[in-house]
């Protein structure tokens, strides 16, 4: 019973808090640009509105077009259940759950991509190609990051992997994971979530044809993914496990907020990269994680 209660609380936590992040990012961007910007809760309003709306579906698409966003959402929610939340721990933890998490993210991607290709639109094709191709490089970086966490903690279970502090490699890992966060969540400089120039988009181009409740599932899933990566980044770098529960929760929240603000600042201050430069940045992220791995392995300098 207690377990069930815990699970429900946790799900609520992820479901309710996740849409805050894009709101904060937009607020930061507006603040840097000197505008007032949309309210922080804008995404909640959008989701509520979309949930009530009807759906227009392409004549080419199969019923899977409507169902696949739900599967993506489930994959991301399950991944979130595996991610420990500071003092709360993870909803479920076992040896090797880090890999399950990685592959759940891949499953989410596969479902999104399949739904995008259903429409036979050239724009969706474009977005899909970019998504799956850049994911290859991001995957290498992510595996290296998980390996480095695993090496320095001697474990493959996320709950213990994220516990101990990392030492010198932490800076490298933080930088690498931050770049991966930007890439996986299709933020600037990889993708511009605000643009309406379809040629320059990745994620937005893939979901062009969605509408109504499926689009709500996609948007909510995307915000959960952002929260997931922010939580991963903060816990991988900060020694949260050694703090008192309350302090740990506070540090975690502050860290996630910091990461979100940083994303907003990056989006305000950087322009989107030309697509040919994206592999270079992802390779950099991979190398950062790789060196973090080597530092963790060899004990490293200092």
């Amino acid at each position: 019973m207690k377990l069930l209660l815990d699970l429900i609380l946790r799900i609520d936590c992820w479901l309710l808090l996740a849409p805050l992040l894009p709101g904060i990012i937009n607020k930061v961007k507006a603040w840097v640009a000197g505008r007032r910007g949309p309210p922080v809760l804008q995404l909640y309003y959008d989701l509520a509105r979309l949930w009530k709306k009807g759906v227009v579906m392409s004549t080419l698409a199969s019923p899977a077009f409507v169902i696949l966003p739900a599967l993506t959402w489930v994959a991301l929610l399950s991944a979130a259940m595996l991610m420990p939340l500071g003092p709360l721990g993870a909803g479920l933890t076992f040896r090797g759950d880090a890999l399950v998490l990685l592959y759940l993210l891949a499953l989410g991607r596969f479902c999104t991509v399949w739904a995008a290709m259903e429409t036979g639109s050239a724009f969706e094709g474009m977005g899909t190609v970019r998504e799956v191709s850049y994911a290859v490089l991001a995957e290498a970086a992510l595996i290296a990051a998980v390996l480095s966490l695993s090496v320095q903690s001697g474990s493959i279970a996320l709950a213990t992997m994220l516990g101990p502090p990392l030492g010198a490699g932490a800076v490298l890992l933080a930088a690498g994971l931050f770049i991966i966060l930007l890439a996986e969540n299709c933020r600037v400089p990889f993708d511009d979530p605000n643009t309406h120039l379809e040629l320059a988009m990745i994620h937005e181009a893939m979901v062009l044809d969605h509408s109504g409740p499926p689009l709500a599932a996609i948007l909510h899933g995307a915000s959960m993914k952002l929260l997931l990566f922010a939580v991963l980044l903060v816990q991988a770098v900060l020694p949260i496990g050694q703090l008192q529960p309350l302090a740990a929760a506070a540090v975690l929240a502050a860290g996630v907020l910091g990461v979100t603000v940083a994303v907003g600042l990056v989006e305000s201050l950087w322009a989107r990269f030309a697509f040919r430069r994206v592999p270079l940045l992802l390779t950099t992220a991979f190398l950062l994680c790789l060196f973090a791995l080597l530092v963790a392995w060899k004990g490293g300098p200092a």
Binding site: P279, L280, T283, L287, L290, L294
Partner: peptide
């Protein structure tokens, strides 16, 4: 190219270590 030279440099660094 830049990506290959970056990878080469990283490989060289790792080999050096």
């Amino acid at each position: 190219g830049f990506v290959p030279s970056l990878l080469l440099g990283a490989g060289g660094t790792i080999a050096a270590f």
